[in-house]
Nucleic acid binder design. Structure first.
Lengths: 204, 204
DNA sequence: CACATAAGCGGACTTAACCCCGCTTACCGC
DNA sequence: GCGGTAAGCGGGGTTAAGTCCGCTTATGTG
């Protein structure tokens, strides 16, 4: 887990910095474990890690940035499966099947990390211009599929938010103001909905 | 503009409270005009209105709440057109046409109020369980249309976020981190994309 | 009109994200 | 090894969101 794919970044990041980043992520996860997202404050994170507050902000830019980093980290595994795992999630299956498989996987991923994903949204300062990996992958598959007459860029965005939105804001069930974690039944409905959408849009 | 549709609320709200609410909204709009969303702070809003900070929070609950209130206020006009305006936006046209018309109108609405809509999102404390009017309307139209084999509740959510997401987070153009307001060309693409989606999903 | 009361109000207080800037230290070429 | 230097670090300071609680006032009743 040390020197994996080292893509040509101009400045590779100093050794102590990398160590501290990892330490911070680990501490952050521990804090989440014991008190949920609300419990994770910058001061506490710094203190528990034995580092200064400035360091925390240097690494992650903002509170939302930490959650983003955590989510990216968790997402890496999924990415691996998509890039080089077995079909239909990985390469080898027809694009439409991969689309369905990816959506299903993403739904489960989001359901598992709902709290962190939500904390990523922060009206004040989102990292700006950050384009979700999800959308990029969807675009690749859609371009391969090339539905006649579609604007693939736009469609990829629509699909990405059709996948993420309902789960992040938890829109299902009675109109009441309760926000419960999604049940297995909810997830099944979302998955079926996704399958339906892909089939209708990308020919049957 | 005084006593319109007075639905049976248990407590109608005291007169001075209503006056202050309106005053606060007006002041908020003035602040937005002169400095954008970033300039609107609770302290400043209270001071400019000649009221205490407590009052501001009592009325709107949080900073995000103010933006929500502003957006709701702006949205009322659109709602009127949907409920009792001329077709195809208003009642009378076939559901598929109304779906397209509504999406188009919503896209334009969001493009015009993008900054405020964005400020509405706040990872910390969204008013919880708030279901966008948009989604409700979409569900009504979809139920009328009743696409075979679709889960209308799920589909309404997917559509709602397919409409809102790309515009709120501005996902289009080169991958760079610039967040510019959407151009007319962007809007045209989103509209075409929406039309495409509706046609594919709801039969041609 | 006087009173009761519940809603509304104000503004000091607390908390936490985020900024700043002088000090420290890992890394690179000799 | 040995500077030079740019990146990394620390933690106190600033700003703004959100809370609290005692005072004020609109409103309905006898």
């Amino acid at each position: 887990m040390s020197s994996e794919v080292t893509w040509g970044r101009p400045k590779p990041e100093r050794a102590d910095a990398a160590r501290n980043r990892q330490l911070l992520l680990d501490t952050a996860r521990a804090l989440l474990e014991e008190g949920g997202t609300g419990c994770l404050t910058m001061d506490l994170l710094a203190e528990r890690s034995g580092l200064g507050k400035g360091t925390v902000f240097r690494r992650f830019g903002s509170r939302a940035g930490i959650f983003q980093a955590l989510l990216d980290d968790s997402e890496r595994e999924l990415q691996q499966q998509v890039l080089s795992g077995p079909p239909p999630l990985g390469p080898g299956a027809p694009p439409a099947d991969r689309l369905v498989a990816y959506g299903t996987a993403r739904i489960r991923f989001l359901a598992r990390h709902q709290a962190v994903a939500r904390a990523t949204l922060d009206g004040r300062n989102t990292p700006a211009g950050r384009r979700p990996l999800s959308e990029i992958h969807l675009r690749v598959l859609l371009r391969e599929l090339d539905p006649p007459g579609a604007d693939v860029d736009v469609l990829a965005g629509q699909f990405a938010y059709a996948l993420d939105g309902p789960l992040l804001l938890q829109v299902l069930g009675t109109p009441g103001p309760e926000r419960r974690p999604p049940t297995d039944a909810d997830i099944a409905r979302f998955e079926a909905g996704w399958r339906y959408l892909v089939e209708r849009v990308c020919g049957a």
